[in-house]
Simulated scan of single mutants.
Amino acid sequence: MRKAPLTEGRFWHRGAELVYDDAGEGPLAVYAHGGFVSQAAEGRMGLFDWAPVLDAGVRLVRNDARAHGRSTGEAVDSDFTYPSLAGDLLGLLDHLGSADPIDAMGASMGCGSVLHAAVQAPDRFFRLVLLIPPTAWTTREAYARANRESADTIEREGADAWLAAKRKQPRPAVVADVPPFEPTPAEHVLPSILRGLARSDLPSPTEIAALHQRALILAWVDDPGHPLSTAETLAHLLPHADLHVSRTRADMRTWGERIAAYLTRPQP
């Protein structure tokens, strides 16, 4: 692969400076990462391979979410709900001057952001790629309760106590060899992020079923934080959805090629 030149961009939105990476040439696709990481952290973890997407002739813009990585943000719980993060994503599209519908991709928290953005402004999106959809609907309350408890732990004992407890939790086999990461948000913001996510859920099944975009859903197994039930329900609700489930790390390494093929496949 010839490495695509990468440009860093910045813009102000709702009191924060939001930073993104812009690489490649062609139709625009944006990507939103998961909670507590950043574009650089995901790169160090080796989770997703974007080289095939860039090689396929796509302009790929990946942002650091509010208070994550290089982006700034304050300790305000409501800033970190999925609908609020979706507003940041729509602000990015405004900044990029996107006039035509674009492809949007998101993993975990980013998946929630993308779906809410699509519900808020459906005509701005062409196709969706939803990676490791998070807990939703009936599985969300246990996750929300754990997040609220984690926020209390950080405020009472510090982030190290929270991280120590997280490291004791079993990891899905498909990512067992992925290096652990330190959260990129500052410690004083972590409780607000956790509480904002605890207040979040995916759009309602009725709202999702009303979306017209085609979607590719990529999921893995044995992860309570990203249960297969969410991916399967999304595949059932969305009118034009393809679902692929990985059970091994080797199969997960095909996701970049699958995304590239999907984004360049002629649409009916």
Rank of each mutant, 00 (worst) to 15 (best):
T7K: 14
E8N: 12
W12P: 13
H13E: 13
G15Y: 12
A16E: 08
E17T: 14
L18M: 11
L18F: 05
Y20E: 07
D21E: 14
D22W: 06
G24I: 01
G26P: 01
P27V: 01
L28M: 12
G34K: 02
F36Y: 10
Q39F: 08
G43F: 02
G43L: 06
R44W: 14
L47N: 02
L47F: 11
F48N: 02
F48K: 01
W50Q: 00
A51V: 12
V53Q: 06
V53A: 07
L54V: 08
L54S: 08
A56H: 05
A56Q: 03
G57S: 10
V58N: 07
R59P: 02
V61C: 05
D64H: 09
D64Q: 07
R70H: 14
G73V: 06
E74T: 13
A75E: 05
D79S: 10
L85F: 11
L85P: 00
L89C: 10
L89H: 01
L90G: 01
G91P: 00
D94F: 10
H95R: 12
D100P: 07
D100E: 15
I102H: 08
A104M: 04
G106K: 03
S108H: 03
C111G: 04
V114M: 00
L115Y: 00
L115A: 04
A117D: 02
V119S: 10
P122Q: 11
P122G: 09
R124Q: 03
L128Q: 05
V129I: 13
L130C: 01
I132C: 08
P133K: 05
T135I: 06
A136K: 01
T138K: 12
E141L: 07
E141C: 08
Y143F: 14
A144L: 03
A146Q: 05
R148A: 08
A151G: 04
D152Q: 15
D152A: 15
I154S: 00
E155Q: 13
R156E: 13
A159W: 06
D160A: 15
D160E: 15
D160Y: 11
A164D: 13
R167P: 09
R167G: 14
K168R: 15
P170K: 12
V175I: 15
V178A: 05
F181V: 01
E182H: 13
T184M: 06
H188C: 14
S192Q: 04
I193Q: 04
R195V: 05
R195H: 08
L197E: 06
L202Y: 03
S204F: 11
T206L: 13
E207G: 08
L211F: 03
A215M: 00
A219H: 01
A219S: 11
W220F: 14
V221M: 09
V221L: 09
P224G: 03
P224M: 11
H226W: 06
L228H: 06
T230P: 04
L237E: 06
H240E: 13
H240I: 10
D242Q: 14
L243W: 03
H244W: 14
H244E: 15
H244K: 15
M252E: 06
M252Q: 09
E257Y: 02
A260W: 00
L263K: 01
P266G: 11
P266C: 06
P268T: 11
